[in-house]
Amino acid sequence: MPHITLAAEKLTTTFGFPITNSLLTTWLVMAILFIFAFLSTHSISLVPSGIQSAAEIIIGGLHEFFESVIGHHVKLVFPLLASLFLFIIIANWVGLLPGVGTVGFFKNEAQKSIQSKEVISNEGSVVEEKKEFVPLLRGATADLNTTLALAVFSVIAMQFYGFHVLGFHYGGRFIDFRSPIYFFVGALEVISDTSKIISFAFRLFGNIFAGEVLLAVMAFLMPFIIPLPFLMLELFVGFVQALVFSMLTAVFVNVALSHGEGEAHA
């Protein structure tokens, strides 16, 4: 049975900074995105060719889609939404590549639990058993640090756009002393936005991590053919989760930007 951990495994530590396998995958995803971006725009022309037309279809399609969700504010918010979508979908799909999660090395467990009270015996066989398999790469979104970072970024960005578009008036969404009811609603809004961070983070992490576990288990039980439908399913889940994350962000930004619209007429 493969070893499954909720947390990403540490590969090494440089200058006191831990480098995990999911951080490594994040860098890989960044590299893929940047190379794609560079290749598609380094010789941009009005008559598109090859990779530029592919980028145009993706970016144009996303732009149209998000425009239908948040209207004319799309110009302001589009970079965030598109980056969320592209990063999440590529991270999800990179996690499904063969080799991710399976290629790695063995690390001595003894090193990790050196402070534990149980001293490991010097016998070779025991040491062998304690060796832990550490995959070199791990799906970037199968790590709560990544998804939580995205969630925090997205929720903070919502508040930023709120203040950017509506000005100081936007603060009234959370703190409003005009009446006890408004004050209570403001408190609810604070709780709601905080809970958005958690729901964002755990929805994405849960889906992708569960998918990887499912694939690992299926591959362990029946190595050939049978995991294929599940792999297809996970490809779809990866797309849907990217879409859900970016679209929910779009909807929440829309809600934030429409704050006070009703009051203006009252």
Partner: peptide, 27 residues
């Protein structure tokens, strides 16, 4: 790691905006 990922995503946002969205959308 959380901070690292925040920084990573900020870099992605910045670079893709400069390199991908602006030129493609303008064209």
């Amino acid at each position: 790691l959380l901070v690292a990922q925040l920084v990573n995503f900020s870099i992605i946002l910045f670079v893709l905006t400069k390199l991908l969205y602006k030129p493609i959308l303008s064209i």
